[in-house]
Design a protein around this nucleic acid. Structure first.
Length: 562
RNA sequence: GCGCCAGUAGCUCAGCCGGAUAGAGCAACGGCCUUCUAAGCCGUGGGUCGGGGGUUCAAGUCCCUCCUGGCGCGCCA
């Protein structure tokens, strides 16, 4: 339970009771009390909390909202004394505004201080088992900017949901089966044979990258020419196995540099090996949801809200990626997850409806599969949009990005924007002016606070026991503005989790930092009256912890000094 | 043609279940370093929230329609 939530709960109860009494007294009439909100007004002049109850009752009660508000107020706090409410007034179109007593805010700081590093966390998620799958890039290549965005969003969302009381598993789906892997094997084989002087043709849509040649050379250095005599199928298989392990290792390493660690690396091949793909197809068939046409097997997706049927098994007998994906998501539900979140590039959105349709046909709650479609990252350089192309040298890998701007700036940059806004990534800007990244503004706030606390320690002043501190001494406007926003941290985290919107945390921590910088300019911490100093030191401590928590949720470091 | 996302200050973007006078950063201009980090603070200017209609006590937010940009609509993944 957090301070704001607790307060809102009490105010809601108070208002509900007052409205019931007003009805009992025959002053207003309504069937059921509407689901009103208690919000924090943007304008400080409107008090600490505002309720829209009277406006929502207007229709039922057939009275003007302000009259209703008056009737409710006539019964509010008549029989009991409120714990924190200073006064209540009617304003605007019929808002009921609550102004809290001064100590309500500072008691909130005491409450936060007592929670220590856990301040901000909640059990809003109720321990729900959530699977967050992100990046899942093709394991035959390197990670690029789009993957970097997906990784930042997915990992941060997982962190945030964990802090909000969900039980989160981070998962990477390895597409190590299917046509592109077959192609990969053929490419490797061709390069392998070419290394031994054989003039073999390179597959038409093979992997032309230099990295394939390098991988083959590494293999030869370690294992020699033993595959020359092997049957082609075995040769391809062995080279594929070796190269995939290398590639996946490199992907893991790049992600680790980016601060991303997965709980599960899920291999698509295992689904085929365990017959889960055909198993899912068979289940759809048994339920009469497939049809045969042109030699292929189709899922009747049109029976489940889609436009047309979709191919599950090709005429050549090989199941499609779609069939494997159905089996994969079925597998996730079977592992006990009750909520599935996937971060996908916007170019995959055509796949969403048919995947949900198939899961619904299999009897799973498709609405618990949430697919966050992340708009694509467009590379921008010299004022022009460029295609990501290896040949033109405009292909930017995650590792290169990390070398250029570093983990903190990269992750903050990507998680600052909401997933559904398109991003233009200006390479020149990222390289030349990374200091413009707001991440430094936030980190600077953390370093500044740390500096104050360190200096206090050097003067032999340590943080007092929070129970002994008179937080009521914090009366300056800058202190109270900071504190007011600080206490919203648990709400912000819970809301970012519920809305699956990690960018909200970035926005929040920027605001919190701005409020701290203002406070810093307006109030001295060290060298003031000892009791005031003790209270301000605590305000600093809790602020620093809140900033550090937000940054850590975003995968960004909180430096002690800058 | 159909579907998804976007259109908010000069630029990049926030804006939570509809709430009161639409915000931030950057850019521009003017101030503030002999006291805790100036990677900072304080102040000023800047808006038909793409256009039009509708619902509502209340619309940037919901509905309809049109315009513009991006991405999809494969027996690819």
């Amino acid at each position: 339970m957090n301070w704001l939530e607790e307060t809102r709960r009490e105010l809601r109860l108070d208002l509900t009771q007052a409205a019931e009494r007003a009805r009992a007294a025959g002053e207003i009439s309504f069937e059921t009390l509407p689901d009103f909100v208690i919000e924090r007004p943007r304008e400080k002049a409107h008090g600490d909390f505002a309720a829209n109850l009277a406006m929502l009752l207007a229709r039922q009660a057939k009275m003007p909202p302000r009259k209703i508000a008056e009737a409710i107020l006539a019964h509010l706090y008549k029989e009991e004394t409120p714990k924190f409410v200073e006064n209540v007034e009617i304003a605007g179109a019929g808002f009921i505004n609550f102004r809290m007593q001064a100590h309500w805010l500072t008691d909130g700081l005491a409450d936060a201080a007592a929670q220590g590093k856990h301040f901000g966390e909640s059990d809003a998620g109720g321990g729900q088992k959530v699977n967050v799958e992100f990046v899942s890039a093709n394991p035959t290549g390197e990670l690029h900017l789009g993957n970097a965005r997906g990784a930042a969003i997915g990992d941060s969302l997982a962190n945030i949901m964990q802090a909000a009381g969900y039980s989160v598993t981070r998962e990477y789906y390895i597409n190590d089966a299917g046509k592109q892997i077959e192609n990969f094997g053929l490419s490797l084989e061709a390069r392998y044979l070419q290394q031994f002087g054989q003039d073999v043709p390179f597959p038409e849509d093979g992997y032309h990258g230099e990295d394939i040649i390098a991988t083959v050379k590494e293999y030869i250095a370690a294992e020699g020419d033993k595959l020359l005599a092997a049957p082609a199928a075995e040769r391809q298989q062995e080279l594929t196995r070796y190269a995939l392990a290398k590639k996946i290792g490199a992907i893991k390493e790049a992600l680790a540099h980016y601060g991303v660690e997965y709980d599960v690396w899920f291999s698509e091949q295992t689904l085929h090996d365990a017959d889960e793909v055909m198993g899912a197809v068979q289940q759809l068939k048994a339920d009469g949801n497939v049809l045969e046409q042109d030699g292929a097997l189709w899922f009747a997706a049109d029976k489940f809200g889609c436009e047309k049927p979709e191919v599950l098994v090709r005429a050549n007998g090989i199941p499609t990626y779609y069939a494997a994906d159905i089996a994969y998501h079925k597998n996730k539900f079977q592992r006990g997850f009750t909520r599935l979140i996937n971060i996908w590039g916007a170019d995959h959105h055509g796949h969403v409806a048919r995947l949900k349709a198939a899961l619904a046909a299999l009897g799973y709650p498709a609405e618990e599969l949430e697919i966050i479609l992340m708009q694509l990252v467009r590379l921008f350089s010299g004022g022009e949009i460029m295609r990501m192309s290896k040949r033109a040298g405009t292909y930017v890998t995650l590792e290169e990005l990390l070398d250029e701007v570093g983990k903190d700036a990269a992750r903050f940059f990507f998680v600052m924007r909401s997933a559904d806004s398109q991003m233009d990534f200006d390479l020149d800007l990222a390289k030349s002016q990374s200091m413009d990244n707001p991440v430094y503004y936030v980190q600077y706030a953390h370093a500044r606070i740390n500096s104050i606390i360190n200096q206090a320690a050097e003067q032999g002043i340590s943080l007092a026991d929070a129970a002994d501190v008179n937080f009521g001494l914090l009366t300056e406007e800058a202190e109270r503005d900071l504190l007011r926003r600080l206490l919203e941290l648990p709400d912000e985290i819970a809301q970012a989790a519920a809305q699956e919107a990690p960018h909200r945390i970035a926005a929040y921590v920027m605001e919190l930092s701005a409020l701290f910088h203002s406070f810093y300019g307006a109030c001295r911490v060290l060298g003031v009256d000892a009791d005031l100093q003790a209270a301000r030191l605590w305000l600093c401590r809790v602020t620093a912890d809140a900033v550090a928590k937000c940054l850590s949720l975003l995968g960004v470091s909180a430096p002690q000094k800058m």
